[in-house]
Nucleic acid binder design. Structure first.
Lengths: 356, 356
DNA sequence: CTGAAAGCGCTAACAT
DNA sequence: ATGTTAGCGCTTTCAG
């Protein structure tokens, strides 16, 4: 019905086109399109009608350059296959929904250099804020973040100094907390199964915390088993088989994430082991989609979604109240013993003589 | 050591700053920073040194406006919690890595209106291309895509007309393929368990295909069970329990995704059912991280990563060879019978008479 | 309430 | 190999 010309002239429409189409100055058209209040209802309607009819989409590049304002928030995570980060991203998305800010995601594959590159790329779009995982960055990345002049939120991990704001949990403390739970349930010969990735700092900190926590009780790890490659049930099975073959006397297996933990759990069940009686098990993350396994794996909730929400909240808040100093939010993860850590306190002494 | 002024003047650095710092014209600095060949090694070094020392990050907003070129590819997916999309995104990321193009992700939560909003927002940054999931869009979104003048790739689904290019599989055909496999293995009383989400068109098409395929053999679904909410093992268990209670004579359960399928499998195993003898089961997606379950669930691979790679390839290719017409790539999903569809042909007739 | 002028930071297109 | 000029499409600022 409308007299669309074939639009052969593949030139994107400009404000000027709309202006000409409705006989209102570019300036006023711009005002209408930005929802500014000081325009008469009559012209507003005229302009909106014209814009809609033409199918005009504003050019934010030009807008951003002129106004020096960009409604983008750069979000940089190590991986999307990890299952943890998609949840964080959802939290960020949700929290930003009503703020006019838009998240833009980048992925580093756990490579610090790649992180630096992605960060550079993103900063060159002059976002309103940056959210990135972890506290470990290359010196160059750190420098860029410090001099960017925008709010920076480091997420997931609070074990270390932050550039600006942080939202996360202490993975070290989570490891210690698990150690306490393990020991006070009476387990003594503990094996650790985890990733070999040198750049997964949080997994490493969890292991460090576990080792520390055990040390506080006069214990040390009885065995470790590392792997590389994506976390999957199958990996967990294989590792569990391997570690139990090497050291059949282990009475607890701590997995650095729930996915391999679940695999281990299935393996142990299949082997007919007495869980949690003779063998306790635990993972990390609180991956709720695993509910439904024959036994509920003990785990520590990493507060993923909340971390995303809070981080986004900090960025969104900054706009209003000017430059507040960095905020530090350390969430307290909840340990859920599930069905794989025995509840009854075992009173046996820790070392030397009779261990359980 | 270096004499950094406190940088109180929180003004982002410009090309001009670099230019003044090294005594080379802005234009030449710009050339160096864009790696253009026509600059003498001497000046190149001078410029790079100055830029590094200052910590200059180019302003792509200005650059894009001037050059009318944006190295961004808009990628719009329904969800990140689905596990399917992160893999697609990884494929896109990987394929774009060496092209100078950068993916930018948006999430719609399966809402067509939200898709329209996100699309508008992204198009306003004038990306070099758009990749989005599915063939179903609001009329306004469709109009925007048609008039954007950039390559558009609709992914995941090939069952319907495309705006420009498509890369995906036919979910309808996948459903039919599964129906054939089920019937020729001799199963006759088939139940479907799936999502209730009205906007998950691909799940719906799989069910349609299944129904069609069964009809071709003179069969129809003996029972259905729907749910809403995220896919999780637990859901699969509950649904399985429910459908088998209502209709204990079912001999096959088809789940609309592997996650609920895995839950169902665990439930069935626990109930001590004879799988695949008395009860066959299948899911959809080829989620390889589920390998490690007691039995391998039959499934159809959705080619997620390849879809991402091919889609990105189309966008990246366009730059070079100008405006080719839309490409259509329909991948052929592989059906893996796993351990939950019996292999031996059962020769029993389909229905009353002999219809196959 | 509306319009005109200037310029955001960079790069294309031309000089030199 | 380097510099100069103009302008990308919008918004800020200041006049009406």
């Amino acid at each position: 019905m409308t007299q669309h010309r074939p639009n052969e002239l593949r030139r994107p429409l400009t404000l000027r086109d709309v202006s000409e189409a409705c006989g209102v100055s570019e300036m006023t058209v711009s005002r209408v399109l930005r929802n500014r209040a000081d325009v008469s209802p009559a012209t507003r309607e005229k302009v909106l009608a014209a814009a809609r009819a033409l199918g005009y989409v504003p050019n934010k590049i030009a807008g951003a350059l002129a106004s020096q304002q960009v409604n983008l928030v750069a979000v940089i995570v190590p991986s999307l296959s990890n299952l943890v980060f998609p949840e964080v991203l959802s939290g960020i998305s949700a929290a930003l929904e009503e703020t006019g800010l838009q998240p833009v995601f980048g992925v580093t594959n756990y490579s610090p250099d790649r992180e630096e590159t992605v960060l550079y790329e993103m900063l060159s779009w002059r976002p309103s804020g940056v959210i990135l995982a972890g506290l470990e960055h290359t010196p160059a990345a750190r420098a860029m973040l410090e001099s960017a002049g925008i709010p920076v939120v480091e997420i997931m991990d609070t074990d270390g100094p932050a550039i600006d704001s942080v939202v996360g949990i202490s993975h070290r403390a989570a490891g210690r907390q698990m150690a306490d739970a393990i020991v006070s349930a009476g387990y003594r010969r503990i094996g650790f199964l985890g990733t070999k990735m040198p750049d997964d700092h949080r997994a490493r900190k969890r292991m460090d915390g576990l080792v520390e926590g055990l040390a506080a009780h006069g214990l040390e790890l009885a065995a470790t088993e590392f792997y590389s490659g994506g976390s999957a049930l199958q990996k967990g099975r294989e590792m569990t088989k391997a570690i139990l073959t090497r050291q059949p006397d282990l009475d607890f297996l701590y997995f650095s994430n729930d996915m391999i933990g679940a695999g281990g759990l299935l393996e142990a069940i299949e082997q007919g082991l007495d869980i949690p009686g003779k063998l306790g098990m635990a993972g990390f993350n609180g991956l709720n989609f695993l509910a439904g396994l024959p036994l509920r794996l003990a785990t520590i909730d990493a507060c993923r979604r909340e971390i995303g929400e809070r981080a986004a909240g900090i960025i969104a808040g900054r706009g209003t109240d000017g430059l507040v100093g960095g905020v530090r939010i350390e969430l307290t993860p909840r340990l859920d013993p599930g069905d794989t850590i025995r509840r009854q306190q075992v009173q046996a002494p820790v070392s030397g003589a009779a261990s359980s």
